[in-house]
């Protein structure tokens, strides 16, 4: 479904690659959690998957389409079929829950109808349904700024769901939420994942969440994949490898010798 081939990203003005020579492939039905320290390249990898970030070298294939070669229109089709949720929710302010969710349809309709908010009864009904799926039926008319963090992320999920995506991406969708709310969101994502048979790829900071929900865990470090396997294979050893820099280890060993 998704395939990275020798994928590298170097941001302009930086000499260190954010991703270097990554080879990965993902299939429908996988629930992947991506771990890694801050700056490891997690966001960059996720953003490459729907072409929000261009590869400097190598290629990302979306169901066979090379994202750096296809034209704008095809890229928009790819994005339409890829739902994405974000750490800071990225909802459009001053609009209601209902209106925000409807923006999920923007990729599949013409802009004149989008601009004037001309949605068919069928489309509105679909929006109400996904809002019900994420448990926000009672908040449907409220403005999104006034919602709690967990509710905002539910709006984000509903917006992505309305796209009827094949792939679901999340860039640290629970990093600004408390642990209880984070678990609720993950339960919801898991439920959606299995009922729609998606490919779900999510960045997390919390290793326990990753091990509990993922069917496959990835760990990145300095732009390279250092672990790719089943959650139970992600041992403490890999944990330290992922989260401790070599320098820190050295300091630690010096201290322990004394």
């Amino acid at each position: 479904m998704l395939k990275a081939e020798n994928l590298s990203v170097i941001y302009p003005g930086s000499d260190k690659p954010a991703l270097s020579n990554v080879d990965l492939s993902f299939e429908q039905g996988e629930f992947v959690c991506v771990l890694g320290q801050s700056g490891a390249g997690k966001s960059t990898l996720i953003r490459c998957m729907n072409g929000l970030q261009k590869a400097t070298e190598g290629e990302m294939f979306w169901d066979g389409s090379p994202l750096s070669k296809i034209d704008d229109k095809q890229l928009r089709t790819v994005r339409k079929e890829t739902g994405m949720i974000f750490q800071h929710f990225n909802l459009v302010p001053r609009l209601s829950v209902f209106q925000n969710v409807l923006t999920g349809l923007f990729g599949s309709r013409n802009n004149f109808r989008n601009a004037f908010g001309l949605f068919s009864d069928e489309e509105k009904e679909m929006a109400r349904q996904v809002i019900g799926n994420v448990g926000l039926e009672n908040e449907i008319g409220r403005r999104v700024e006034n919602l709690s963090g967990g509710q905002k992320q539910r709006v984000g999920i509903a917006r992505a769901l309305l796209q009827q995506p094949k792939v679901f991406l999340g860039d640290e969708p629970v990093a600004s939420l408390d642990p209880g709310t984070a678990a609720h969101i993950f339960n919801l994502l898991q439920e959606i994942h299995f009922s729609h048979n998606l490919l779900t790829i999510i960045n997390v900071h919390d290793v326990n969440l990753a091990k509990h929900y993922a069917t496959r865990v990835l760990a990145l470090k300095e732009g390279k994949v250092i672990f790719d396997g089943k959650p139970e294979e992600f041992t403490d050893e890999y944990y330290h490898l992922t989260y401790n820099s070599a320098q820190k280890k050295q300091q630690f060993s010096v201290v322990s010798k004394r």
């Binding site: 890829t82 302010p93 989008n114």
Partner: peptide, 22 residues
């Protein structure tokens, strides 16, 4: 805020429309 613009692009809207709307 750039966040909503990015979200509108991720949904598959045209760039100019994503900017305008967000």
């Amino acid at each position: 805020d750039e966040g909503p613009q990015e979200a509108m692009k991720a949904v598959g809207a045209k760039n100019w429309f994503a900017f305008l709307f967000s």
